[in-house]
Simulated scan of single mutants.
Amino acid sequence: MNDDELHFVDNFTESGFVFAPFDSAEKSILFPLNRALFISEELVNKEKIIEKKPFSVDDSSKKKHVQIIEKAIHEIKTTDLQKVVISREELVKISYFDVLEIYKQLLFTYKNAFVYVWFHPKVGLWFGASPETLLIIEDEAFKTMSLAGTQVYNNTEKPVWKSKELEEQQLVTNFIKNQLKDSTTNLIIDKTETIRAGNLLHLRTKVSGMLKESSTLEQLIRALHPTPAVCGLPRKIAKDFIDTNESYNRSFYTGFLGELNLQNATSTLKKTQLFVNLRCMKVQDDVASVFVGGGITKDSNAENEWEETVSKAKTMKQVL
């Protein structure tokens, strides 16, 4: 953009690049298409060998996160809450910082993810590498996915998934199916598969279909965001638990971002591609805020959930 003015989405009929927060009640930021400058560059595929740096997390952070998870498990077992995603913010001191170098390393580390660097002088600098599509829509055809369950990649693409991860994944898939049934037709739910993102594996189920004539992009976004993969079920109860118990503001973490109503030069159709803002960090001065979380169900183990967040944070921190 050629100015520092903040622009916001009104009803998702606009064209440009959207950066939306986790809280759907807050405004989504827009880089309008008619104010954007497009620059392209071919990146040389030279992956730098990343030195495995030792990172420590203080015991108080672990204790606090484990306590919240234990409280969430209790709520799930005693109330209508079925699942809730608990996250945390980890602060990392940066000694040397190069925007382009970090972006390149994210590209090479997360080859199957949507990798971005985003900056606005009134908001800040964000990096991310998301393996999760919120929504892709072209004309009346759309695609989305449910993504849940995590384990560390150990040189096998055919891992054994436990009942906890399988149930968590099914909850997300069922939510998407129920949310879309009134606004779509020809809904197709693919077979669940394992995908790799950096040093982690996830369960993914692709979902596709057609929009009804009466449906709008805004309706579809409101129906899906935030999904149980980043919030929980039932959505309102989970969101209330997060707002009450997480000790920080997620801001744009677990929000969504991407191209909004852009037209390809070779087509008359407008296309929207939105991704959930996972595996991300905000950089301010010499400190990076790395955001990580995990889905909690009745079968969760607090210590294991803590270790999952450590694994998720590790790759993001290594590119710094």
Rank of each mutant, 00 (worst) to 15 (best):
W161S: 07
Q170V: 04
E167N: 02
L201A: 02
I86N: 11
I136V: 14
E246C: 04
P131M: 12
P121E: 06
S311H: 10
Q273T: 10
I242M: 09
I39G: 03
V230A: 03
N45E: 13
V117H: 01
L220A: 01
S300R: 07
V283P: 06
M1C: 07
I76V: 13
Y103L: 14
N199T: 08
F241N: 04
V160I: 14
S267A: 02
F22C: 08
F142D: 01
N261I: 03
S146I: 10
V310A: 00
L274Q: 03
T156I: 02
K27W: 00
S311A: 12
S183D: 07
S15P: 06
V66E: 14
T173N: 08
K104F: 00
I86T: 13
L320I: 09
N264P: 00
T79F: 09
S300G: 14
N154I: 08
I221P: 06
R204E: 10
I50E: 11
L81V: 01
G255V: 02
A113D: 15
K282Y: 12
D243K: 13
A141D: 11
P21R: 01
M316F: 13
K143W: 10
F241L: 12
K271P: 00
Q105C: 04
E259K: 06
L220S: 03
S289E: 13
I242H: 00
R204G: 05
L166E: 09
T109D: 05
S15I: 01
R222M: 07
V292W: 10
S247L: 10
Y116W: 03
A288M: 07
F256I: 06
N2R: 14
K298C: 00
I76W: 09
Q67K: 13
N199D: 09
T315D: 14
Y103I: 07
E259L: 11
H225T: 11
